[in-house]
Simulated assay, not measured.
Amino acid sequence: MGDALLQDLWFHQADDVVIEDIDTNDESVVIRARTQRLQAACPSCGALSGCVHSH
């Protein structure tokens, strides 16, 4: 399955998402993705940040 197809199927509602790697085996599919944005809003507090500031 190509990156473009995965982008369309699973990330069609997310802007600026880049698929970096796809790893598959008999039991799972692992997709490593990231945003192209320099900053994003924290889903908890709404603060803009260029790195993870909480878990």
Rank of each mutant, 00 (worst) to 15 (best):
L9R: 04
R34S: 03
D16E: 09
D23Q: 10
Q39F: 01
S28V: 05
V18I: 07
S54E: 14
Q36F: 11
R37G: 03
D3C: 10
D8W: 05
E27D: 05
H12V: 02
H12F: 15
G46C: 02
P43W: 14
S28C: 07
C42M: 07
S28T: 12
D23F: 09
H55E: 14
R32Y: 15
A41V: 04
Q13C: 03
L6W: 15
P43R: 01
R37V: 02
S28I: 02
Q7A: 06
A14L: 12
V18E: 11
Q39P: 00
Q36I: 03
A41K: 09
L5K: 10
Q13V: 04
F11H: 04
I19D: 02
R32C: 11
R32K: 15
V30G: 00
D8G: 12
H12L: 08
D15T: 12
I31S: 09
E20W: 14
D21K: 15
H55A: 13
G46N: 01
Q13F: 06
D26W: 08
D26E: 08
H53N: 10
D26F: 14
T24S: 10
R32N: 14
C42W: 03
M1I: 11
I22A: 03
L5M: 09
I31V: 15
M1P: 06
D15I: 02
C51L: 12
D16A: 10
A33W: 13
R37T: 03
L9C: 10
D26K: 13
S49C: 07
D15L: 11
F11W: 14
D21P: 00
G50C: 09
I31G: 13
V29S: 09
R34L: 03
Q7Y: 13
Q7H: 11
Q36N: 06
G2R: 09
A33K: 13
Q39A: 03
R32A: 15
L6F: 15
H55G: 13
A14R: 07
R34E: 00
R37S: 10
A33H: 13
Q39Y: 00
D23W: 05
H53E: 10
S54D: 13
T35V: 05
L9G: 01
A4H: 09
S44F: 12
V30P: 01
G50S: 10
L5S: 07
N25I: 00
L48G: 00
R34P: 00
L38E: 05
R34V: 01
R37P: 01
V18P: 05
S28G: 03
A33R: 10
E27N: 08
L9E: 06
L5G: 03
L38M: 04
A14M: 13
D3V: 11
V30M: 06
D21R: 15
I22R: 01
L6D: 07
V18W: 11
G46S: 02
S44N: 12
S54G: 14
T24W: 09
F11T: 02
R34H: 14
E27A: 05
F11N: 00
I31M: 12
